[in-house]
Amino acid sequence: MSKASRNPHTASGIEYHWGVRKLLLKLCLNAIAALPLALVQAIGAFLGMLAYVGSKQYRSLFRPQYEAVVQARKLPLKLWEAIRASGMLFSDSLWIWRNPKKALKLVEVQNWDVVEAAIGEGHGLVMLTPHLGGFEIIPRVLAQHFPATILYRPSRQEWLNEVVEEGRAYPNMHFVPTNLNGVRQMTRALTRGEAIGILPDQVPSGGEGVWVPFFGRPAYTTPLPARLANRNNTPVVMFTAKRKGLGQGWLMQATRLTPLSEDANTAAAELNIAIENSVLVAPEQFIWSYNRYKHPAGAELPPSN
């Protein structure tokens, strides 16, 4: 038993301080979100540079992952643009959470006929949204037209989880955790002909993925989108929300994928190719600070070269 649990005064003091911190954090986030989008993005860009300069761990993830893709695909190196955009990725999300109506007015939607045709088939829709640009606007656009059940991974930090869940709450959008119950709820949503949303570039828990290439390196990848889509011939659509100029909003595009394989490894490889194509829409706006190649606990070792 910890000292805090033995001493009720200490425990209540800790809870009080956490409560104050959460309140201050929410006040700061609300204050930032009340600013114009251009200023919020400028603040995000500054924080992105600060994180890069101030954190060796951040740099050790960001730069090698970004540079490897740029070199392999013979793209122009725009390191500092990517660093600034990494901060905007989070500031965009914050602003969209707090200003959904304003955000919806700033999104230009292309290829919407692809979405309408897919949902019109009556088998639901598997919506894939990589961490790129203003990705948080995508489910809100869809929620204007039909219900969407979104799979998410709760944060280990309770205060952060509260902030994210509060920010993501939106009419016609239902968030479910990455567990068996969440998958069941998504299956039921598809049965009702509704949309489900998955972040396909997120590393799944050990035992829930397979090792397949992502930009030439083995990456533990979820075969869940294929498994859900193949149950009832559900269309799979990949979405991107490329950030326009400072304060100008986002360009949302939809691409319908060819049916994914029944084989888990082949389907995951097909999925990663689709994610790569989405990243190449705006390579500087992808979340390069995320360790896409980590080995989750409980997962088998990646194949040796």
Rank of each mutant, 00 (worst) to 15 (best):
S2E: 01
K3R: 13
N7P: 08
S12V: 06
I14K: 10
H17I: 08
H17D: 02
K22M: 04
L25E: 06
K26F: 09
L27G: 11
I32Q: 15
I32L: 13
I32S: 07
P36W: 06
L37V: 04
V40R: 14
Q41A: 11
I43C: 03
G48T: 08
V53D: 01
S55V: 14
S55F: 05
R59D: 05
P64Y: 09
Y66E: 10
A68S: 02
L77G: 07
M88T: 14
L89V: 04
W95E: 03
W97Y: 14
N99P: 08
P100E: 11
L106Q: 15
E108A: 11
V109R: 02
V109W: 03
N111T: 00
W112H: 05
G120K: 00
G122V: 03
H123F: 07
M127Q: 06
L128N: 03
T129Y: 05
L132W: 02
G134K: 12
L142D: 03
F146T: 10
A148M: 13
L151Q: 01
S155K: 02
E158P: 09
E162N: 09
V164W: 06
G167T: 09
G167R: 08
F175V: 13
P177K: 00
N179M: 08
G182S: 04
R188M: 14
L190M: 13
T191G: 15
T191E: 11
L199Y: 07
Q202N: 15
S205M: 11
G207Q: 10
F214G: 14
R217S: 10
A219K: 05
A219R: 11
L224Y: 04
P225F: 00
A229K: 12
R231Y: 00
M238T: 00
K242S: 03
K242Q: 00
R243G: 01
Q248C: 03
G249K: 10
Q253T: 15
Q253L: 15
L257Y: 09
L257D: 01
T258R: 06
A264R: 08
N272Q: 08
S278Y: 06
A282M: 06
A282R: 04
S289A: 07
R292D: 02
E300A: 00
E300M: 13
S304A: 14
